[in-house]
Design a binder for these strands. Structure first.
Length: 311
DNA sequence: AGGATAGCCTGCGGGC
DNA sequence: TGCCCGCAGGCTATCC
Protein backbone atom coordinates (compact mmCIF):
# COMPACT_ATOMS: atom_id res chain seq x y z
CA UNK A 1 0.00 0.00 0.00
CA UNK A 2 1.71 3.11 -1.18
CA UNK A 3 2.63 5.51 1.59
CA UNK A 4 5.31 8.19 1.36
CA UNK A 5 8.34 5.88 0.87
CA UNK A 6 6.62 3.93 -1.89
CA UNK A 7 5.45 7.07 -3.70
CA UNK A 8 8.92 8.59 -3.40
CA UNK A 9 10.47 5.42 -4.83
CA UNK A 10 8.01 5.61 -7.71
CA UNK A 11 8.83 9.27 -8.28
CA UNK A 12 12.54 8.53 -8.44
CA UNK A 13 12.06 5.62 -10.81
CA UNK A 14 9.87 7.70 -13.12
CA UNK A 15 12.03 10.80 -13.08
CA UNK A 16 14.76 9.66 -15.43
CA UNK A 17 12.38 8.22 -17.98
CA UNK A 18 9.61 10.80 -17.98
CA UNK A 19 11.20 14.21 -17.61
CA UNK A 20 11.70 15.64 -21.08
CA UNK A 21 9.43 13.10 -22.75
CA UNK A 22 6.58 14.33 -24.94
CA UNK A 23 3.11 12.91 -24.50
CA UNK A 24 2.00 11.75 -27.92
CA UNK A 25 -1.39 10.38 -27.00
CA UNK A 26 -3.56 9.46 -24.04
CA UNK A 27 -6.09 6.65 -23.80
CA UNK A 28 -8.68 6.76 -21.05
CA UNK A 29 -10.07 3.32 -20.43
CA UNK A 30 -12.07 4.32 -17.37
CA UNK A 31 -13.31 7.88 -17.16
CA UNK A 32 -14.36 7.68 -13.54
CA UNK A 33 -10.83 7.49 -12.16
CA UNK A 34 -10.38 11.10 -13.28
CA UNK A 35 -11.49 14.16 -11.37
CA UNK A 36 -11.47 17.01 -13.82
CA UNK A 37 -11.52 20.76 -13.81
CA UNK A 38 -14.88 22.18 -12.90
CA UNK A 39 -16.11 19.01 -11.31
CA UNK A 40 -17.82 19.54 -8.00
CA UNK A 41 -15.35 19.60 -5.16
CA UNK A 42 -14.80 16.28 -3.63
CA UNK A 43 -13.13 13.01 -4.22
CA UNK A 44 -13.27 10.06 -6.43
CA UNK A 45 -15.88 8.16 -4.49
CA UNK A 46 -18.35 11.01 -4.62
CA UNK A 47 -18.05 11.28 -8.34
CA UNK A 48 -18.68 7.60 -8.74
CA UNK A 49 -21.80 7.70 -6.61
CA UNK A 50 -23.11 10.59 -8.64
CA UNK A 51 -22.68 8.56 -11.77
CA UNK A 52 -24.32 5.51 -10.36
CA UNK A 53 -27.22 7.66 -9.23
CA UNK A 54 -27.66 8.44 -12.95
CA UNK A 55 -28.06 12.11 -12.21
CA UNK A 56 -27.50 13.71 -15.60
CA UNK A 57 -27.21 17.18 -14.12
CA UNK A 58 -24.02 16.30 -12.28
CA UNK A 59 -22.30 14.20 -14.93
CA UNK A 60 -18.55 14.81 -14.97
CA UNK A 61 -17.13 17.64 -17.00
CA UNK A 62 -15.90 16.56 -20.40
CA UNK A 63 -12.17 16.31 -20.76
CA UNK A 64 -10.61 19.03 -22.88
CA UNK A 65 -7.63 18.48 -25.16
CA UNK A 66 -4.48 18.54 -23.11
CA UNK A 67 -6.18 17.91 -19.78
CA UNK A 68 -4.24 14.67 -19.42
CA UNK A 69 -1.03 16.25 -20.81
CA UNK A 70 -1.57 15.15 -24.40
CA UNK A 71 0.86 17.23 -26.46
CA UNK A 72 2.74 18.40 -23.39
CA UNK A 73 6.37 17.90 -22.47
CA UNK A 74 6.78 16.43 -19.00
CA UNK A 75 8.61 19.11 -17.09
CA UNK A 76 8.92 17.68 -13.59
CA UNK A 77 7.60 15.24 -11.01
CA UNK A 78 6.82 16.41 -7.52
CA UNK A 79 5.55 14.67 -4.43
CA UNK A 80 3.85 15.83 -1.27
CA UNK A 81 2.91 13.13 1.15
CA UNK A 82 1.40 10.29 -0.84
CA UNK A 83 0.44 12.47 -3.78
CA UNK A 84 2.54 12.45 -6.94
CA UNK A 85 2.24 15.31 -9.41
CA UNK A 86 3.21 15.12 -13.07
CA UNK A 87 3.67 18.66 -14.38
CA UNK A 88 3.73 19.36 -18.10
CA UNK A 89 4.57 22.37 -20.23
CA UNK A 90 3.78 23.00 -23.85
CA UNK A 91 6.55 22.99 -26.43
CA UNK A 92 7.93 26.44 -27.33
CA UNK A 93 5.79 27.51 -30.29
CA UNK A 94 2.42 27.18 -28.65
CA UNK A 95 -0.65 29.27 -27.94
CA UNK A 96 0.15 31.32 -24.85
CA UNK A 97 -3.18 30.75 -23.12
CA UNK A 98 -2.16 27.45 -21.54
CA UNK A 99 1.42 27.10 -20.46
CA UNK A 100 1.17 24.38 -17.89
CA UNK A 101 -0.95 21.58 -16.67
CA UNK A 102 -0.54 19.31 -13.66
CA UNK A 103 -1.87 15.87 -12.84
CA UNK A 104 -1.98 14.52 -9.34
CA UNK A 105 -1.91 10.77 -9.12
CA UNK A 106 -3.27 9.28 -5.92
CA UNK A 107 -2.46 5.61 -5.75
CA UNK A 108 -4.87 4.69 -2.98
CA UNK A 109 -4.42 1.10 -1.90
CA UNK A 110 -3.51 -0.71 -5.07
CA UNK A 111 -2.59 1.95 -7.61
CA UNK A 112 0.47 1.52 -9.80
CA UNK A 113 2.32 3.59 -12.38
CA UNK A 114 4.08 1.29 -14.82
CA UNK A 115 6.55 2.05 -17.59
CA UNK A 116 6.53 0.13 -20.87
CA UNK A 117 9.41 -0.03 -23.28
CA UNK A 118 7.66 -0.99 -26.50
CA UNK A 119 5.81 1.70 -28.44
CA UNK A 120 2.08 1.04 -28.85
CA UNK A 121 2.53 -2.39 -27.33
CA UNK A 122 2.01 -2.00 -23.60
CA UNK A 123 1.83 -5.05 -21.44
CA UNK A 124 -1.72 -6.26 -21.57
CA UNK A 125 -2.85 -5.92 -18.01
CA UNK A 126 -6.21 -5.95 -16.32
CA UNK A 127 -7.32 -2.80 -14.50
CA UNK A 128 -5.27 -0.39 -16.58
CA UNK A 129 -7.36 2.79 -16.62
CA UNK A 130 -5.13 5.32 -18.38
CA UNK A 131 -2.34 4.89 -20.91
CA UNK A 132 0.04 7.67 -21.95
CA UNK A 133 1.98 7.13 -25.19
CA UNK A 134 5.32 8.88 -25.03
CA UNK A 135 8.02 10.13 -27.31
CA UNK A 136 10.93 9.64 -24.94
CA UNK A 137 13.68 12.17 -24.47
CA UNK A 138 17.09 11.37 -25.95
CA UNK A 139 18.63 8.11 -24.73
CA UNK A 140 15.45 7.15 -22.89
CA UNK A 141 13.42 4.07 -23.67
CA UNK A 142 10.01 4.34 -22.00
CA UNK A 143 7.25 4.61 -24.60
CA UNK A 144 4.24 4.09 -22.39
CA UNK A 145 3.12 4.99 -18.91
CA UNK A 146 0.19 3.09 -17.44
CA UNK A 147 -2.03 3.92 -14.49
CA UNK A 148 -3.32 0.65 -13.11
CA UNK A 149 -5.51 0.30 -10.03
CA UNK A 150 -7.54 -2.86 -9.43
CA UNK A 151 -9.53 -1.51 -6.51
CA UNK A 152 -9.84 2.01 -7.84
CA UNK A 153 -9.37 3.71 -4.49
CA UNK A 154 -6.93 5.89 -6.34
CA UNK A 155 -7.35 8.27 -9.23
CA UNK A 156 -6.02 11.19 -11.19
CA UNK A 157 -6.87 14.81 -10.51
CA UNK A 158 -6.38 17.58 -13.04
CA UNK A 159 -5.03 21.04 -12.21
CA UNK A 160 -4.82 23.84 -14.75
CA UNK A 161 -1.50 25.09 -13.44
CA UNK A 162 1.17 24.28 -10.91
CA UNK A 163 -0.10 27.25 -8.88
CA UNK A 164 -3.49 25.56 -8.61
CA UNK A 165 -1.72 22.36 -7.61
CA UNK A 166 0.31 24.07 -4.90
CA UNK A 167 -2.79 25.81 -3.57
CA UNK A 168 -4.54 22.46 -3.33
CA UNK A 169 -1.57 20.99 -1.50
CA UNK A 170 -1.38 23.94 0.89
CA UNK A 171 -5.03 23.65 1.86
CA UNK A 172 -5.55 19.88 1.82
CA UNK A 173 -2.24 18.60 3.14
CA UNK A 174 -0.06 19.26 6.14
CA UNK A 175 3.72 19.47 5.76
CA UNK A 176 5.43 16.56 4.09
CA UNK A 177 6.22 13.95 6.71
CA UNK A 178 9.90 13.82 5.68
CA UNK A 179 10.32 17.38 6.92
CA UNK A 180 8.05 17.28 9.96
CA UNK A 181 9.27 19.35 12.89
CA UNK A 182 8.62 18.85 16.61
CA UNK A 183 7.11 22.34 16.73
CA UNK A 184 4.51 21.61 14.07
CA UNK A 185 3.77 18.22 15.58
CA UNK A 186 3.31 19.66 19.05
CA UNK A 187 1.06 22.41 17.70
CA UNK A 188 -1.12 19.88 15.86
CA UNK A 189 -1.46 17.52 18.78
CA UNK A 190 -2.25 19.81 21.70
CA UNK A 191 -6.02 20.03 22.13
CA UNK A 192 -6.65 17.04 19.87
CA UNK A 193 -8.94 14.58 21.62
CA UNK A 194 -8.28 11.61 19.40
CA UNK A 195 -5.74 8.81 19.49
CA UNK A 196 -2.23 9.78 18.41
CA UNK A 197 -2.45 7.09 15.74
CA UNK A 198 -5.51 8.77 14.21
CA UNK A 199 -3.70 12.11 14.21
CA UNK A 200 -0.66 10.66 12.43
CA UNK A 201 -2.91 9.18 9.74
CA UNK A 202 -4.58 12.55 9.16
CA UNK A 203 -3.03 13.94 5.97
CA UNK A 204 -3.99 17.47 7.00
CA UNK A 205 -1.75 17.13 10.07
CA UNK A 206 1.20 15.69 8.21
CA UNK A 207 1.27 14.24 4.72
CA UNK A 208 2.59 10.82 3.85
CA UNK A 209 2.12 8.54 6.86
CA UNK A 210 -0.23 5.59 6.46
CA UNK A 211 -1.00 2.56 8.57
CA UNK A 212 2.37 0.83 8.23
CA UNK A 213 4.61 3.78 9.02
CA UNK A 214 2.32 5.12 11.75
CA UNK A 215 2.77 1.86 13.65
CA UNK A 216 6.50 1.74 12.97
CA UNK A 217 7.08 5.36 13.99
CA UNK A 218 5.07 5.00 17.21
CA UNK A 219 7.05 1.90 18.11
CA UNK A 220 10.34 3.68 17.51
CA UNK A 221 9.19 6.60 19.64
CA UNK A 222 7.87 4.35 22.42
CA UNK A 223 4.40 5.90 22.33
CA UNK A 224 1.24 3.84 22.55
CA UNK A 225 -1.05 4.28 19.52
CA UNK A 226 -3.96 4.47 21.95
CA UNK A 227 -2.77 7.50 23.81
CA UNK A 228 -4.74 10.69 23.23
CA UNK A 229 -2.86 13.11 20.97
CA UNK A 230 -3.22 15.87 23.55
CA UNK A 231 -1.46 13.62 26.09
CA UNK A 232 1.70 13.39 24.06
CA UNK A 233 4.09 15.47 26.13
CA UNK A 234 6.07 18.36 24.70
CA UNK A 235 9.26 16.44 25.49
CA UNK A 236 8.01 13.60 23.26
CA UNK A 237 7.41 15.73 20.17
CA UNK A 238 11.09 15.71 19.31
CA UNK A 239 11.59 11.92 19.46
CA UNK A 240 8.28 11.38 17.66
CA UNK A 241 9.20 13.72 14.81
CA UNK A 242 12.62 12.10 14.61
CA UNK A 243 11.04 8.64 14.55
CA UNK A 244 8.67 9.56 11.73
CA UNK A 245 11.48 10.96 9.61
CA UNK A 246 13.87 8.10 10.38
CA UNK A 247 11.38 5.35 9.62
CA UNK A 248 10.42 6.98 6.33
CA UNK A 249 14.03 7.62 5.32
CA UNK A 250 15.05 4.06 6.07
CA UNK A 251 12.09 2.78 4.07
CA UNK A 252 13.01 4.96 1.07
CA UNK A 253 16.54 3.54 1.17
CA UNK A 254 15.02 0.08 0.84
CA UNK A 255 12.62 1.06 -1.92
CA UNK A 256 9.53 0.98 0.31
CA UNK A 257 7.51 -1.96 1.66
CA UNK A 258 6.03 -4.51 -0.70
CA UNK A 259 3.21 -6.47 0.88
CA UNK A 260 1.19 -7.35 -2.17
CA UNK A 261 0.71 -4.90 -5.02
CA UNK A 262 3.41 -2.32 -4.71
CA UNK A 263 6.19 -2.26 -7.31
CA UNK A 264 8.17 0.61 -8.78
CA UNK A 265 7.37 1.55 -12.40
CA UNK A 266 10.03 -0.84 -13.66
CA UNK A 267 8.58 -3.72 -11.68
CA UNK A 268 10.91 -3.75 -8.66
CA UNK A 269 9.46 -4.59 -5.24
CA UNK A 270 10.69 -2.89 -2.07
CA UNK A 271 12.34 -4.69 0.82
CA UNK A 272 11.51 -2.60 3.87
CA UNK A 273 8.79 -5.05 4.89
CA UNK A 274 11.66 -7.26 6.07
CA UNK A 275 12.61 -4.55 8.56
CA UNK A 276 9.15 -3.97 10.05
CA UNK A 277 9.29 -4.11 13.83
CA UNK A 278 5.57 -4.27 14.56
CA UNK A 279 3.38 -3.91 11.46
CA UNK A 280 1.91 -7.29 10.56
CA UNK A 281 3.69 -8.98 13.47
CA UNK A 282 0.86 -9.32 16.01
CA UNK A 283 1.47 -12.14 18.46
CA UNK A 284 5.17 -12.31 17.65
CA UNK A 285 7.87 -11.21 20.08
CA UNK A 286 8.71 -7.53 20.38
CA UNK A 287 12.14 -6.98 18.81
CA UNK A 288 13.10 -4.76 21.75
CA UNK A 289 11.81 -6.50 24.88
CA UNK A 290 10.74 -9.91 23.62
CA UNK A 291 7.20 -9.48 24.93
CA UNK A 292 4.20 -10.39 22.82
CA UNK A 293 3.08 -7.74 20.30
CA UNK A 294 -0.55 -6.79 20.67
CA UNK A 295 -3.08 -6.00 17.97
CA UNK A 296 -6.34 -4.05 18.02
CA UNK A 297 -8.41 -1.77 15.85
CA UNK A 298 -7.53 1.87 16.46
CA UNK A 299 -8.81 4.66 14.24
CA UNK A 300 -10.50 2.02 12.08
CA UNK A 301 -7.13 0.48 11.27
CA UNK A 302 -5.51 -2.71 12.37
CA UNK A 303 -2.83 -1.54 14.76
CA UNK A 304 0.06 -3.47 16.25
CA UNK A 305 2.23 -2.33 19.10
CA UNK A 306 4.21 -3.46 22.13
CA UNK A 307 2.25 -2.73 25.33
CA UNK A 308 5.48 -2.93 27.30
CA UNK A 309 7.70 -0.64 25.21
CA UNK A 310 4.98 1.79 24.16
CA UNK A 311 3.16 3.78 26.82
C1' DA B 1 -16.49 21.89 14.38
C1' DG B 2 -13.75 18.13 15.56
C1' DG B 3 -14.09 13.44 15.53
C1' DA B 4 -16.15 9.06 14.29
C1' DT B 5 -18.13 6.26 10.72
C1' DA B 6 -19.69 4.29 6.15
C1' DG B 7 -18.60 3.06 1.76
C1' DC B 8 -15.98 2.58 -2.20
C1' DC B 9 -13.51 -1.67 -4.62
C1' DT B 10 -10.92 -6.38 -5.85
C1' DG B 11 -7.87 -10.15 -4.68
C1' DC B 12 -6.44 -13.42 -1.73
C1' DG B 13 -6.23 -16.80 1.85
C1' DG B 14 -8.47 -19.67 5.37
C1' DG B 15 -12.04 -22.80 6.42
C1' DC B 16 -15.05 -26.27 5.13
C1' DT C 1 -11.28 -28.51 -6.04
C1' DG C 2 -14.17 -24.74 -5.23
C1' DC C 3 -17.07 -21.68 -2.87
C1' DC C 4 -17.94 -18.29 0.79
C1' DC C 5 -16.48 -15.10 3.85
C1' DG C 6 -13.45 -11.94 6.10
C1' DC C 7 -9.95 -8.84 5.61
C1' DA C 8 -6.66 -5.49 3.63
C1' DG C 9 -6.91 0.31 4.10
C1' DG C 10 -6.50 5.52 1.63
C1' DC C 11 -9.65 8.82 1.08
C1' DT C 12 -14.04 11.49 1.04
C1' DA C 13 -18.79 12.43 2.32
C1' DT C 14 -21.69 12.43 5.90
C1' DC C 15 -23.34 12.02 10.33
C1' DC C 16 -23.18 13.22 15.29
Amino acid sequence: MPELPEVESIRRALHGQLVGATVRGVSVLRRDVIVGLGDPQGGFSRQRSERSASNAATSPTALRPGDLLDGFIIDRLERRGKQLAIIGRLPKPSPPRIAERALVVQLGMTGQLLLGEAPSNPRSLAHVHIRWDLAPAKSRTAHTLLFRDPRRFGGVRIFESSDALYEHWATALGPDALSITPEHLARSLTDSQRAIKAALLDQAVLAGVGNIYADEALFRAGISPRRLAAKVRASEAEPLAESIRAVLEHAILRGGSTLRDYVTPDGQPGTYQLAHNVYGRAGQPCPRCGGKLKSATIAQRTTTWCPNCQR
